[in-house]
């Protein structure tokens, strides 16, 4: 009985969370409506002017909540992180699981654990103090001078390379934080692939590369997808590290890869203090949190469906080996 009492706590917390957020977000939803999703101006309003009332909702003068840049920023940083992290993680996992001697594989495992266990505020510190300036000084100009010269890509990759606080650095930092999740899961999955199909591949004269591409990776594709989604969840919700390197540019989309921007989570943590004094601002933040929650939950649902579809077709040899 006590066990059941404990077991319902997560569910109750979840329901309470949703109810509280929806309840608190209602005024902001009523106030900004669809502009929340389409607008790109974010204004906390005039704190010291007399509040006005429109449509029965009391709010500060000039208040405007357009969250499009934040939503896009959240998605864009996570996309950059995954583009970098997935190949790196899977490659490293293949090397660790298939080639490295036991002892070295153990050491590599410690590094993965270390990277996964480092508090995100330390990653943020490293990003703000070390990685950001190096990106601004060396990496961004390099990309702008090479990729940025290809016709058609000039707009996004070229032009001014910024201060190192922005979209690109945030994406890199998130990649560093996501890599241990994807890499350690992939490594365990690769180790779990039965030896028979791989021996079969070798007996057919496949090279390591062909064996990995045609046997090992298809075998674990759905598992890797699950790990990627797990990493995506972390990237979407990561707060403090991104808040330290994104440049916190509210209300405007970055014009290129290096521009300052903000994600939903970073905005909440950086600006909640400003919002505390006004109920409508707080309500807008509740709506932001709701949006972030919907995005992460949607990712999870899509992933579950995808995993179901992939696992139906991608396994080349019967599982009954």
């Amino acid at each position: 009985m006590i066990g059941l009492g404990g077991a319902v706590v997560p569910g109750l917390v979840l329901i309470g969370l949703l109810v509280e957020l929806i309840f608190k977000a209602l005024p902001a939803i009523g106030y900004s409506g669809l502009r929340f999703l389409t607008g790109s101006t974010w204004n906390f309003g005039a704190d010291y002017a007399t509040p006005v009332t429109t449509n029965g909702l009391t709010h500060l003068q000039g208040e405007e909540f357009g969250a499009l840049p934040q939503i896009l920023g959240t998605l864009a940083t996570s996309a950059i992180a995954l583009i970098i992290a997935v190949p790196v993680s899977v490659g490293a996992a293949l090397l660790i699981a298939e080639r490295l001697p036991r002892r070295l594989a153990g050491i590599a495992g410690v590094f993965l654990e270390l990277l996964a266990g480092v508090p995100s505020v330390l990653v943020g510190l490293w990003g703000a103090v070390t990685l950001g300036p190096i990106v601004a000084r060396h990496v961004s100009p390099l990309i702008a001078h090479t990729v940025g010269r290809i016709p058609g890509l000039t707009g996004f990759f070229g032009q001014s390379t910024g201060s190192g606080q922005g979209l690109f650095t945030s994406g890199l930092l998130l990649a560093v934080m996501v890599i241990p999740i994807i890499a350690s899961t992939s490594r365990d999955l690769i180790r779990g692939v039965p030896v028979l199909p791989r021996e079969g591949a070798v007996a057919l004269g496949m090279s390591d590369f062909e064996c990995a591409r045609k046997v090992t990776l298809p075998w674990i594709a759905s598992g890797i997808l699950g790990a990627v989604v797990l990493g995506l969840g972390r990237a979407l919700g990561e707060t403090i590290a991104v808040a330290m390197v994104c440049g916190v540019a509210l209300g405007s989309l970055p014009t290129n890869l290096y521009g300052a921007m903000v994600t939903i989570a970073a905005n909440i943590v950086q600006n909640l203090e400003t919002a505390i004094t006004d109920p409508m601002d707080i309500s807008a933040f509740a709506e932001l949190a709701l949006a972030l929650m919907v995005i992460t939950l949607l990712t999870n649902v899509v992933a579950t469906l995808l995993v179901r579809r992939v696992s139906g077709t991608a396994i080349p040899v019967g599982r009954g080996l």
């Binding site: 077991a7 319902v8 997560p10 569910g11 917390v13 979840l14 969370l17 509280e20 957020l21 969840g233 979407l236 919700g237 990561e238 707060t239 989570a265 909440i268 943590v269 909640l272 933040f285 509740a286 949190a289 972030l292 929650m293 992460t296 939950l297 999870n300």
Partner: peptide, 16 residues
């Protein structure tokens, strides 16, 4: 219940 809870960003929990 707890699996969904694990997917919710910590900043959302902090805000609530």
């Amino acid at each position: 219940g707890y699996e969904i809870l694990s997917g919710i960003p910590s900043i959302v929990l902090g805000l609530v």
